[in-house]
């Protein structure tokens, strides 16, 4: 009896500790989001005001959102910048997927000289923090008249795709070659097989690369700022928001409610993309389950 009791107590203790850790982690990760959300509806431009008025809002205030959608400053508007961001991030995502998958396929399937060295090199390159390259990239691209959107996309893409190429290689390694062989015998060329069979079987990696590419470009400030700051119409959402909320001027008080509202709006497309990608990944994996190698 004592033995059984001891086991029960231990079990409760174990569960108690696990839940405590989980709850703390949830609070740590959810609270900042909740805080931003609340600030955006607070109607007050400071951070302190929210805390003094309590955690739960008494009423929702839409002034910040109204201002963001209507304001027309520096010859641009938030919606224009948001559109710019989406185009930029979307193009980066698409280009990253193509580059990563083609590289991954080549490393996995084709007989290229010095393949192993190349793969290792790619792996090492992913270790470098990519923001550190902003200045050399700017200087290099300035020489080629690439201080524009195309330049930005070209700068973003390798950062994502070099990382994704490595994952793509591992993923394609695990796809039995017979899928491709059968498709080739059935009448597709190697490139068609790549598009119709390999990309489809490696869908989780495609989705992951798309997310990485999209969010990398979408959430970048440093490079976008240095490339686009002079052309206000070409600003991205994040750069525009920075100016809109007055964060650029240290002397004046920044409007945190505007910044928070912008962050919430910008978060919507990203969340949607992540949800769709996760669905794609789950589906692809469940379809692959039970495939004999």
């Amino acid at each position: 009896m004592i033995q059984v009791k001891k086991h029960k107590i231990l079990k409760i203790l174990r569960l108690g500790i696990s839940y405590a850790v989980l709850i703390i982690m949830v609070i740590v990760s959810i609270f900042p989001l909740y805080y931003i959300f609340m600030v955006s509806f607070s109607g007050a431009p400071t951070l302190v005001s929210l805390i003094s008025s309590g955690i739960l809002p008494k009423h929702l205030n839409f002034t910040a959102y109204k201002y963001i959608f209507q304001a027309n400053i520096y010859g641009g508007s938030f919606l224009l910048w948001l559109r710019n961001s989406l185009i930029l991030a979307g193009s980066t995502a698409i280009l990253s997927v193509i580059l990563a998958l083609i590289t991954g396929y080549a490393l996995s399937r084709l007989d290229i000289p010095a393949k192993k060295i190349l793969a290792t090199f790619i792996y090492i390159v992913t270790f470098f923090p990519y923001t550190a390259t902003a200045v050399p990239i700017y200087l290099l691209f300035a020489k080629f008249h690439l201080i524009n959107y195309i330049g930005l996309i070209l700068a973003y893409t390798p950062g994502t795709s070099i990382y994704a190429a490595f994952i793509a290689k591992l993923s394609i390694d695990s796809i039995p070659a017979s899928y491709e062989e059968i498709a080739m015998i059935d009448g597709l060329s190697r490139f068609q097989v790549f598009l119709r069979i390999v990309m489809r079987l490696a869908l989780p990696v495609v989705a992951l690369t798309a997310i990485l590419g999209f969010s990398g470009a979408y959430l970048d400030f440093a490079l976008a700022y240095s490339f686009l700051v002079t052309n206000t119409k070409a600003w991205t959402g994040l750069v525009g928001l920075y100016y809109l909320a007055g964060l650029v001027n240290q002397a004046s008080a920044p409007a945190y409610d505007l910044f928070a509202a912008g962050a919430v709006i910008m978060g919507i497309p990203l969340t949607a993309l992540v949800l769709v990608s996760f669905r794609m990944m789950t589906r692809a994996y469940s379809a692959m389950a039970g495939v004999k190698q």
């Binding site: 017979s178 060329s189 692959m288």
Partner: peptide, 20 residues
């Protein structure tokens, strides 16, 4: 002649049925 023009069919060991 490339595989697609040889007009042969193949049944591989793992069947290679496209899971999707």
């Amino acid at each position: 002649v490339p595989p697609k023009d040889r007009n042969v069919a193949m049944v591989p060991q793992n069947y290679a049925l496209y899971p999707f």
